[in-house]
């Protein structure tokens, strides 16, 4: 079964492809998370106009196919707005980030709504500002609800990055397909299905790593709900007897 393994030279080129894949993933993830937070919060705004605008974005980003959005971004947008077409990496990342933001905003909105109303009321009673309420009270609690679906969404975006091979970015999918089309030139021929299986396994491994990272943060978030071990200064009064 050593046939399943490719040559080290090919793995070196796949590693370069993996770096492109991870680069696109990181860029679109950052953009996606920013858009998710922004539009997720805007969806709950008191102002009709803001709510409507956020809803329009969410519906657009989720309604349009990511592959179509990617091609619009890579081919139509540079011509329409006179942007340099060479920067496919950025254009592709923006397309995937826009896509992720639409789904992410709904996750954030749902999670914020899941935080009991009393938490916001207590924040008002303690006179926190709206931003403080969001940052210290609502989002930390929403995090528990956000992380699991965000992990899944990130894996969806990882899968989506394979599409950038279609607009000539040399990611994993691109390089694997190149191996196949160049196979005629290769001295030893690997069956095509093994090439693709290798690519799939690489994606699978990356997905598992993403999974692990999100699990780690889920555990950390949940740990906030357990007691702290920080030492307290000694009490100058004897502990009251009334407490069990």
């Amino acid at each position: 079964m050593d046939q399943l393994i490719l040559s080290s030279d090919r793995y070196a080129r796949l590693w370069e492809g993996t770096q492109i894949t991870l680069g696109v993933l990181a860029a679109s993830f950052v953009l996606g998370v920013v858009l998710s937070l922004l539009f997720g919060v805007m969806r709950l705004s008191d102002r009709r106009f803001v709510r409507g605008f956020a809803l329009a974005y969410v519906e657009f980003a989720r309604g349009i196919s990511s592959i179509v959005l990617l091609f619009i971004m890579a081919y139509a947008v540079p011509i329409l707005f006179g942007l340099p077409q060479e920067n496919v990496f950025i254009l592709a990342s923006v397309a995937l980030g826009l896509n992720m933001g639409g789904y992410g905003a709904e996750i954030i909105r749902g999670a914020i709504e899941s935080v009991p109303k009393g938490q916001s009321e207590a924040s008002v009673a303690l006179n926190l500002t709206n931003m403080q309420r969001l940052r210290f009270i609502v989002l930390p609690q929403a995090m528990r609800v956000i992380l699991p679906p965000m992990g899944n969404l990130t894996i969806e975006i990882l899968k989506g990055t394979a599409l950038v091979s279609l607009v000539s970015l040399s990611d994993i999918a691109f390089r694997i397909d190149l191996f196949r089309t160049n196979a005629a030139l290769a001295e030893t021929r690997t069956p095509d299905w093994i090439l693709y299986l290798n690519a799939l396994v690489i994606y699978f491994v990356i997905a598992q790593i993403i999974n692990g990272i999100f699990r780690y943060f889920e555990r950390r978030t949940n740990a906030k709900y357990e007691s702290r071990n920080r030492p307290l200064p000694a009490s100058d009064v004897a502990p009251a007897g009334m407490v069990k």
């Binding site: 009393g118 207590a122 009270i137 930390p140 609690q141």
Partner: peptide, 11 residues
């Protein structure tokens, strides 16, 4: 408040 509304993620 009646239902305390303590912040559950804080000690």
């Amino acid at each position: 408040f009646q239902h305390f509304n303590l912040f559950p993620h804080m000690s």
